[in-house]
């Protein structure tokens, strides 16, 4: 790991101030940044430790929803009654992420900033990867890519975003709140990650020195669920994941929001399917057809055709699970 200099921010204002230094990175939970520095994904000259910033870790009700401070630890968010009862999809997504130890470190604000798990991107010694070295090519495209994208990829990058919580947040239409010396922003989670067609080198839309300060959830979604598919039962990234939030009229879906994870460089909302799901019973045979509407745009790689089938099945299943919630 290249050495760096270190500063502790005592407040949000101080963090933003320090964040204006050249080649600086914010350190929240550290579960990603420290590994990036080890592998050489990122070698900032300066690190700003946010651990002592006060007042950014609350989970609280706001008008029409809940606001989660960016520095709230994942385990605390998932087990907070406001989340566990009001937004089970988010609680489940978090509790299926990583391990109990990592969730004690990782923050809800840092989590969406997680970078891809493509093995070429994560190679210690560096492999051709446009996210590691723009212009160096995509080793996965010509190599092993059977855990890669089925939506929204280009020949410059076929990786998927691996994190669980953003899939739930995308299904909930949550908003990421940022601050920056030149003004903060409200960024819908659905638009936070950058598709390779927009820029293959980027992961997200954050600017230098921009700090995520919170995440805002709209109205509670008690009928919601998260499904994570992986080879082993725990402590593993998703092969495919699915989040659903339903509003029901008796036994019939009034409104459905469904997002898939690990299928694209961002959580993938099944917009076309959602429109067709309204008016259906969650276990109706027509649900499969409704979901298929969103798979018209699926474009599997040679190695990911199986993931199309899996993602379709996962979407159908998570709707059942959400209806039972």
């Amino acid at each position: 790991m290249r050495d760096f200099s270190y500063a502790r921010a005592g407040s949000r204002a101080e963090a933003l101030d320090l964040g204006q230094a050249d080649d600086a990175a914010f350190l929240a939970g550290g579960t990603e940044l420290i590994n990036w520095m080890r592998i050489g994904i990122n070698a900032p000259a300066r690190v700003i430790d946010l651990a002592r910033v006060e007042g950014l870790d609350a989970v609280e009700e706001i008008e029409g929803g809940v606001r989660i401070g960016a520095l709230a630890r994942l385990n605390d968010v998932a087990q907070n009654p406001l989340i566990a009862e009001g937004y089970p999809v988010l609680s489940h997504a978090i509790l299926r992420a990583a391990s109990a130890q990592i969730r004690n470190l990782a923050t809800i604000g840092g989590n969406p900033v997680q970078r891809v798990r493509c093995p070429y991107f994560r190679a210690n010694e560096g492999a051709p990867c446009n996210k590691r070295e723009p212009g160096s090519g995509c080793a996965a495209l010509n190599g092993i890519h059977d855990r890669h994208a089925i939506f929204g990829w280009t020949e410059d990058c076929v990786a998927v975003h691996p994190a669980d919580p953003p899939v739930a947040l995308a299904a909930l239409d949550a908003v990421i709140v940022t601050d920056h010396p030149e003004g903060g922003r409200l960024i819908p989670v659905r638009e936070f990650h950058v598709l390779p067609s927009q820029n293959p080198a980027w992961h997200d839309v954050l600017r230098a020195g921009e700090l995520i300060v919170g995440i805002e959830l709209p109205a509670p979604a008690p009928r919601s669920a998260y499904l994570k598919i992986r080879e082993r039962e725990s402590y593993e990234y998703a092969t495919v994941s699915a989040a659903a939030a339903l509003e029901m009229d008796g036994g019939v879906i009034r409104r459905a929001r469904v997002a898939l994870g690990s299928v694209a460089m961002r959580p993938w909302r099944l917009v076309a399917a959602e429109a067709r799901l309204a008016g259906l019973a969650p276990d109706a045979p027509e649900v499969a057809d409704a979901i298929d509407a969103s798979f018209a745009e699926a474009r599997p790689l040679s190695g990911t055709e199986w993931k199309v089938r899996l993602a379709r099945n996962a979407a159908r299943r998570v709707i059942e699970l959400a209806a039972e919630a």
């Binding site: 798990r117 093995p119 080793a139 092993i144 039962e233």
Partner: peptide, 24 residues
Amino acid sequence: RLDPVLGRWLSKDLAGVAIPTNAD
């Protein structure tokens, strides 16, 4: 898995190569 082009093990870690956990 050996990358067919680069000749390197695809994942040289414990996140890209699954081994059983307690929950399994």
